[in-house]
């Protein structure tokens, strides 16, 4: 299953809800303001790192660049472009958007 989160973890609890529900082997894609969840140095860093033991985390590159955060992606998080976004949706049997 692919989980998509588009809200900042510092403003909404969407990412936390997602990580609570994401089962082992699923993928989490952070887009729009959700990309802040995949950046270094913030207070959410530990939670994402812990989650990465069970789920694969992706982040949308164009949204990172727009926010000036492209140079501080957490280690272990994969940056994808729009094509990669499409691939992720195609690869997974279903998809939940945590709006």
């Amino acid at each position: 299953m692919l989980h998509i989160v588009n809200k900042s973890p510092y403003e909404r609890n969407s990412l936390e809800s997602c990580l609570r529900m994401a089962s082992k082997g699923s993928a989490v894609l952070l887009i729009e303001d959700g990309v802040y969840g995949a950046t270094k140095g913030g207070s959410f860093e530990g939670k994402i790192q812990a989650a990465m033991a069970d789920v694969k985390v992706y982040v949308l590159g164009p949204d990172l660049s727009a926010r000036g955060m492209a140079d501080r992606v957490l280690d272990g998080v994969s940056v994808v472009d729009y094509g990669g976004f499409v691939d992720l949706v195609a690869e997974h049997s279903n998809c939940q958007s945590w709006l």
Binding site: G61, P62, D63, G68
Partner: peptide, 10 residues
């Protein structure tokens, strides 16, 4: 106010 914002591909 974050430096280095680049919205070209957005």
């Amino acid at each position: 106010l974050k430096k280095g914002q680049d919205t070209k591909s957005l």
